[in-house]
Design a binder for these strands. Structure first.
Lengths: 183, 183
DNA sequence: CCCGATTGAGACACCCACGTCTCATTCTGC
DNA sequence: GCAGAATGAGACGTGGGTGTCTCAATCGGG
């Protein structure tokens, strides 16, 4: 069984999303490889987490590109963004909670770049009159991440059907829970 | 310096919300007591986390009571709920992520009771026509927890002003990010 | 004021995960 | 088929956190 670095990272992400305290041995078995091999490719647990960060950043850079955030209205772009992010939602959930631990350190510049793109998207929506201006782009970005993570967990626990993932997030984030009069 | 069990728990919650991997020694120092004393009152780390769960459940039972979830419209009740939950938002953020680790075990019945109350609130709102019926109460409940946690973290990191806590959560959850026509 | 209870500081052993290493086996390219 | 590389399984030492214990100091009620 050849060692596929990216596949190992994906398996690790899938496990660590559910159990962030998983052992290196558990990660290795989840990836179907030996613990020694895991250590050969990732110097240690920190290196593994960093590699997961890099993977996540790469994946979301691609997802953002595919979502064509600059095209159409911001609302349309946001729907595409959630759709593109879905395959990596668990990874996002893991990385968001993991990033809480690096409070003091400087934030990874890759994350800053991604954040900036989402913030710019919300700001564009505000300037075009489609997004409320009383909710800051920074908060909307945080909320987007939070909702994606929450929904990913809810799907994992069976509280939300996987097929409803995009709908639940985009509808709640964009339209809110309140039943508006015009509907 | 007398040992105030509840105060120790609150200090522990404040620290663990930010750094979930904090040492028992760090927790003890954060609470201003010795590690030995901490161990005298909480058999171990697991016992401490359980005590935090109990504290959280107690706090939110009270918060829910104070919010009078059965009075007025569901929307009004939800606003009161967020207001009452704010002082314990960090604790909620910690417990929600911590609960992810107990996937296999049976969920704490206290949480189930709280969940049921929130779900019932959303369901009531749906029945009264104030809440959309295409978003399941279970998802709305998860989203509420997620947004509270996300906002609590955003406040801790300075990305959201503490004074905007209630507004950001209730407005986004109820009204959504989209700028509606009637406004 | 005194005596019991509680606390803080430290010492101690224990345990688990980590990281490294070895070695036989398997895989892969030539 | 062969030689080199890569892998899996396991052994091994280490470190850091945990849990327990002791003992002196402090606190608090009678």
């Amino acid at each position: 069984m050849a060692m596929d670095r990216d596949q190992v990272l994906r398996d690790a992400a899938a496990l660590l999303s559910r159990k962030s305290t998983a052992t290196m041995d558990e990660v290795a078995r989840a990836a179907g490889i030996g613990r020694a091999t895991l250590h050969r490719h990732f110097a240690g647990r920190d290196a593994l987490v960093r590699a997961l960060e890099d993977l996540g950043i790469r994946e979301f850079e691609v997802a953002f590109d595919n979502a064509r955030l600059d095209e159409g209205t911001a609302v349309e772009a946001l729907r595409r963004l959630v759709a593109e992010a879905e395959p990596n939602a668990e990874l996002l959930a893991f990385l968001v909670t993991e990033n809480q631990l690096f409070e003091g350190d400087e934030v990874n510049e890759g994350w800053a770049r991604l954040d900036a793109r989402v913030i710019a998207l919300f700001r564009r929506g505000q300037e075009e009159g489609d997004i409320r201006i009383d909710l800051s782009p920074a908060w909307l970005t945080e909320a987007l991440y939070g909702l994606i993570g929450s929904c990913a967990w809810a799907v994992m626990d069976g509280r939300v059907a996987a097929k409803d993932f995009q709908y639940m997030i985009t509808e709640l984030l964009l339209g809110g829970a309140r039943r508006s009069v015009e509907k």
